[in-house]
Amino acid sequence: MIEIIIVAAGYLLGSLSAGVLVARALGLGDPRDAGSGNPGATNVLRLGGKKAAVLTLIGDGGKGMLAIWLAHAFNMIPSIIALTGLAAFIGHLYPVFHGFRGGKGVATGFGVLLAWSWPAGLAALFTWLLVAAVGRRSSLAALAAAVLAPIYLLLSPAPLVITLAMIPMAALTLYRHQDNIRRLLDGTEPRIGQRSR
């Protein structure tokens, strides 16, 4: 029974959209109705500046980490820890508190990954920073990090079940970035800090 509660708690934590909450608190309105329509840090940056973006990034990443720490605090087995992280990620994508209109999961997925395995998390962060610095496009950096994350986990000391949970997270990240992928292919994807077209 406690296992079900922990996984459900992971989903509920994930359902707290930092971008929506931060934007409302700063009087920016709902980020899902402006810019790219995504409540993530990149869109919040375009709408409200660096402070709002940093708060969104910390909030979304932090809830992913918190979900895993909660599972560890209750000494859950690796499969439940894996499911809790996946639940937090899905909660961000389809949040019960925000009409199931969520984000793309990059920051929350990173928070989960970092709490699952800090070496894999740091490798994914380095990948994001490198691709973002070269390509100047947040979506491209996120896609690269998501694709490589299962490989980083496989090479880390994390249990195999954690790697298996990362695979659908990576796939969902790609799915949620369909519009970005199309814009990347036709050269219209905004650069970091640039307003969406």
Rank of each mutant, 00 (worst) to 15 (best):
M1W: 08
E3W: 08
A9L: 08
A9W: 01
G10S: 10
G14P: 09
L16W: 12
S17G: 07
A23Q: 09
R24F: 03
A25M: 09
L28I: 06
G29K: 07
D30G: 12
P31K: 11
D33V: 12
G35N: 05
S36P: 11
G37R: 03
N43Q: 15
K50L: 13
T56N: 09
L57F: 14
I68N: 12
W69Q: 14
W69T: 12
H72Q: 11
A73C: 02
N75V: 00
I80N: 11
A87T: 11
A88F: 15
I90Q: 07
G91L: 07
Y94T: 01
A107D: 11
A107R: 10
T108L: 13
V112Q: 09
W118Q: 05
W118N: 06
P119Q: 12
P119H: 05
A120N: 12
L130Y: 01
A132Y: 15
A133D: 01
G135C: 13
R137I: 10
S138W: 11
S139K: 02
L143N: 07
A144G: 05
I151V: 15
P157W: 02
P157M: 03
A158T: 02
A158Q: 11
L164C: 03
A165Y: 01
P168M: 04
M169H: 00
A170T: 01
T173N: 12
L174V: 12
Y175G: 02
Y175E: 10
L184A: 14
D186N: 09
G193C: 05
Q194M: 06
R197N: 11
R197A: 08
